[in-house]
């Protein structure tokens, strides 16, 4: 397991996906995360969204943002944590692969 996998796993644990939401497999969202050296999440902002605009896409982006906030503190890698400070951590969410297998 790489150090990045620890963050990936932690956030995944808190990401509630609704597989019945219309178009969920077509959505993708990139979040910019402001995080402290100890992994405490200070702020999360949406920097990019893909998929048909509307309530479902907003709910998808909200859900991703909520997952990052709930996952705080993030398990920060010892050697790379300084690269992730000052909003330089980008978390990119999509459920394509996960839901593709179910359909």
């Amino acid at each position: 397991m790489t150090e990045m996998d620890a963050i990936r796993q932690r956030v995944s644990q808190f990401w509630n996906i609704d597989p019945g939401a219309r178009g969920v497999e077509t959505f993708a969202v990139e979040l910019r995360v402001w995080v402290d050296r100890d992994g405490t999440v200070r702020d999360v902002r949406v920097v990019n969204v893909q998929g048909e605009a509307g309530g479902f896409r907003d709910a998808f982006a909200d859900g991703a943002r909520r997952a990052v906030l709930r996952a705080s503190p993030l398990p920060m890698p010892v050697d790379k944590s300084s690269q992730m400070l000052d909003g330089n951590l980008i978390l990119a969410f999509n459920a394509r692969e996960m839901l593709g297998a179910r359909r």
Binding site: M4, I7, R8, V11, S12, Q13, F14, W15, N16, I17, D18, P19, E30, V47, N48, V49, A64, A67, K80, Q83, M84, N88, L89, I90, L91, A92, F93, N94, A95, R96, E97, M98
Partner: peptide, 20 residues
Amino acid sequence: LALPSVAQSQVRIDITRGRV
């Protein structure tokens, strides 16, 4: 949305699994 996409110095992690 208009922000430039992820620059080199940033760390990007893909989250492709969640919980139903």
